[in-house]
């Protein structure tokens, strides 16, 4: 059911964003605090083993929100810890480099070469 697949991507992705919006509006957190909280939450949910089922259900609805960054790093660390024990906890995180970060660095650099910030309201 391809429709249902997209529906869950939309639903779960939207819900995670709503949690972020509530943290900012009701919790009065800055965007920086909000995103940090979400990343840590993703990490903890991952440790409990609940993030993968979320990805299975929602696909990009769970991998696109920043929570998945916490999940990816945690899964990396846990997988290596399973193989190599204590040392793996440290080295595991470096195995799973997030493509989001490296892509942002590369495109950020390229954008800085091309663009100039412009202060226009509309």
């Amino acid at each position: 059911m391809i429709f249902l697949d997209f529906f869950f991507a939309f639903l779960i992705g939207g819900i995670i964003c709503v949690i972020g919006q509530l943290l900012m509006d009701v919790g009065k957190f800055t965007p920086g605090h909000t995103l940090s909280i979400l990343v840590v939450s993703g990490s903890i949910i991952s440790g409990l083993g609940w993030y993968q089922p979320l990805i299975d259900l929602a696909g990009a609805g769970a991998t696109i929100p920043i929570t998945s960054f916490g999940n990816a790093l945690t899964q990396g660390a846990i997988a290596e810890a399973e193989k190599h024990g204590w040392v793996g906890v440290l080295t595991g995180m470096f195995e799973v480099t997030s493509s989001g970060i490296s892509a942002a660095i590369v495109f950020g650099f390229l954008a800085a070469l091309i663009f100039k910030p412009k202060g226009k309201a509309n």
């Binding site: 920043i66 989001g100 970060i101």
Partner: peptide, 8 residues
Amino acid sequence: AVPVTGFS
């Protein structure tokens, strides 16, 4: 802000 696009 929450999707990886916000990080970008």
